[in-house]
């Protein structure tokens, strides 16, 4: 197995690298959650009124505050939050405890009567649909545009696509979203401009893959356009650079046809940096999802987060931050492994 080889070659260097990455991820995780906590308590708010209800008495408010533990010092609250999250829980198969997993409980909303886990669980697939679908859409746009422009630099195609790139980079996603919604949704009526349909569950009006994709078309486009532009430009530059490499000349000197030169020698090398960039952009990508979800009224993590901030609902804010941080870390690790797998220089040294 290729993955197994990753660890065996190079005297376990890859394994040591992974361990180092995980340790750093833990540090990062603690810092991010701590900072979120501190910021939350630095910002003035009227939490007590919110949790006890408008027009509640002083006493009712004090009780509510006490019930939520908000009268304790910040570090105690943070410690309790973390303990609930990472407390080891044995996992049983049959009745035998086989291994230990972290508890993973993100607590309960201050304002709403539900657990943060269930809120995040229902919002995450929406954001995942948006982000992963969006990544695929942006790669589908960026790769052909970038490669074709690189092959014909200064041609009409190149100039046109670079104009597109310039627009994509300069226009704000909210503006693009509104324009798309207006033209393709409102004026032309081609695509729905709000709501989300579940991929699997058709209960509640709409559902199933077709409806899901149909509702996601405009969000995907809106979400993808900025990154598509950035990536098209990067792919173009990488391919143009790779075309001038000595080993490309070697391949031509061997008598390889141009299509093979491009596929086997140019693209493989030119697209390596794209993989790295994907790993780095996933965090920014999650941030971008907030805008898109707001415009198209998608019940994803971004929307959940925005509302929770408005309601000063700390557990939900924390829940989304923890989940997003975790997702980014895991995704980055996967990208690292992927990179090592496709680049022998990393794999074997």
């Amino acid at each position: 197995m290729a993955l197994y080889k990753l660890f065996v070659h190079g005297g376990g260097a890859m394994l040591r690298y992974l361990i180092r990455r995980v340790l750093w991820a833990i540090v990062l995780f603690v810092v991010v959650t701590l900072v979120t906590y501190v910021i939350f308590f630095l910002v003035p708010n009227d939490l007590a009124a919110k949790v006890a209800g408008q027009g509640s008495s002083q006493q009712q408010r004090a009780r509510a505050i006490h019930r939520l533990g908000l009268d304790r010092p910040v570090y105690v609250q943070y410690a309790k939050f973390m303990w609930l999250l990472i407390k080891p829980v044995p996992v049983h198969i049959g009745s035998v405890p086989v291994f230990i997993r972290p508890n993973g409980n993100l607590g309960y909303s201050f304002v709403r009567a539900s657990s943060v886990n269930s809120l995040v669980k229902s919002a995450a697939p929406v954001t995942a649909s948006l982000v992963f679908g969006g990544v695929i859409v942006w790669l589908l746009m960026a790769l052909p545009i970038g490669i074709l422009s690189a092959l014909r630099p200064r041609s009409l195609l190149d100039r046109t696509s670079m104009t597109f790139v310039l627009i994509g980079i300069s226009a704000h996603p909210i503006w693009i979203g509104l324009i798309f919604a207006y033209i393709f949704g409102f004026k032309l009526g081609w695509f729905p401009i709000s709501n989300y349909c579940d991929f699997f569950n058709s209960a509640g009006g709409c559902g199933g893959p077709a409806q899901w994709a149909y509702h996601m078309v405009l969000p995907w486009l809106t979400y993808a356009i900025l990154f598509a532009a950035l990536y098209a430009r990067m792919v173009r530059a990488n391919v143009m650079e790779a075309m001038t490499e000595d080993y490309v000349r070697t391949a031509r000197a061997k008598g390889a046809p141009e299509s093979r030169v491009l596929r086997s020698h140019v693209l493989r090398n030119a697209l390596l940096p794209v993989v790295t960039m994907l790993g780095m952009d996933i965090g920014i990508g999650l941030g971008g999802a907030i805008f898109t979800e707001t415009i198209y009224n998608l019940p994803g993590l971004g929307k959940l987060l925005l509302r929770a901030i408005g309601e000063t609902d700390l557990p939900i804010v924390m829940g989304v931050v923890v989940f997003a941080t975790f997702a980014i870390i895991v995704f980055n690790l996967l990208i690292d492994l992927l990179y090592a797998w496709i680049d022998p220089r990393i794999r074997l040294s």
Partner: peptide, 14 residues
Amino acid sequence: AMIFQDPMTSLNPV
């Protein structure tokens, strides 16, 4: 057939 000056860059690294 042809061989080039710089063997470090004339072979495809991947």
